[in-house]
């Protein structure tokens, strides 16, 4: 338990002292929403405000996804400079390191996403307290899933030049497939089939359900799928950290 806390505390302290990263993570989501929302909304058949309501959970998803994967990239950076060695050689259970990294990545991603919540009244989303709580809970689950995805991948990489390339190659399709920016109702069947395997799709749908009250997948299914992703990916990351020849 102490190890777990140490892993998280270390990452949060680092975010706190890194004012540029902190400020960027606060400003970036607002850019997403206004630039993307206004630009796309103006030309959309769904009309300005309605579309903004539609993509708001999508933007939350985008922010959570990219921030948590960026947080995970610091693992690769730590490995490259040698700092990760000092952490991995400490007598901390490997599962505490993996879980700590997943949790700290989720927390780091939730900072900008929480800033975005300030827009809930501005956009006139009119959420009841219950729906608001539901949205927050969905955001947590989404953040944990994306962070686990990032940590399980980053744990395997040694080069800070390769990881972002792979990251982008995987992240963007995951995001576009998720229905975050446009509904997939009218998409070809193969695309919709692919979306069923995309954790981002379940996460965005869960958040969108909380905001607009309509779900594409049953919420229970989404919760189960996302939880399974978190467990399996954290286990995979634990195995990588436990490998002896990996320091």
């Amino acid at each position: 338990m102490r190890g777990l806390i140490a892993v998280i505390l270390l990452d949060l302290k680092r975010l706190w002292v890194d004012r540029v990263r902190l400020a960027t993570s606060l400003i970036q989501p607002l850019l997403y929403l206004f630039v993307l929302g206004s630009g796309l909304g103006a030309s959309s058949v769904m009309g300005g405000r309605g579309y903004l309501h539609y993509i708001f959970p999508g933007v939350l998803g985008l922010s959570l996804l990219f921030s948590s994967v960026f947080a995970a990239m610091l693992i690769v950076f730590d490995r490259q400079i040698g700092f990760l060695k000092a952490v991995l050689v400490a007598p901390v259970p490997r599962v505490s390191i993996a879980l700590g990294k997943v949790l700290s990545g989720a927390l780091q991603a939730l900072v900008p996403a929480t800033v975005l919540l300030l827009l809930v009244p501005v956009l006139g989303l009119g959420l009841s307290p219950l729906r608001f709580v539901e949205l927050i809970a969905s955001m947590w689950l989404a953040a944990l899933t994306f962070s686990a995805l990032g940590v399980a991948t980053a744990a395997r990489f040694r080069s800070t030049t390769v990881f972002p390339i792979i990251g982008n190659a995987v992240l963007l399709p995951l995001f576009f497939l998720s229905g975050a920016l446009y509904p997939l109702d009218r998409a070809p069947p193969w695309l919709r089939a692919l979306a069923h395997a995309d954790p981002v799709a379940y996460a965005v749908d869960l958040m969108r359900g909380a905001v607009i009250g309509r779900y594409a997948y049953p919420p229970v299914l989404s919760i189960c799928v996302l939880t399974a992703f978190v467990v399996v990916l954290t286990w995979l990351a634990t195995r990588v950290f436990a490998a002896g020849d990996n320091l």
């Binding site: 270390l10 002292v17 400079i81 040698g82 060695k85 000092a86 050689v89």
Partner: peptide, 13 residues
């Protein structure tokens, strides 16, 4: 306790 060849400190802290 180990002192590695490469630095293993968090430079920003």
């Amino acid at each position: 306790g180990i002192v590695f060849q490469e630095p293993a400190l968090e430079g920003k802290l």
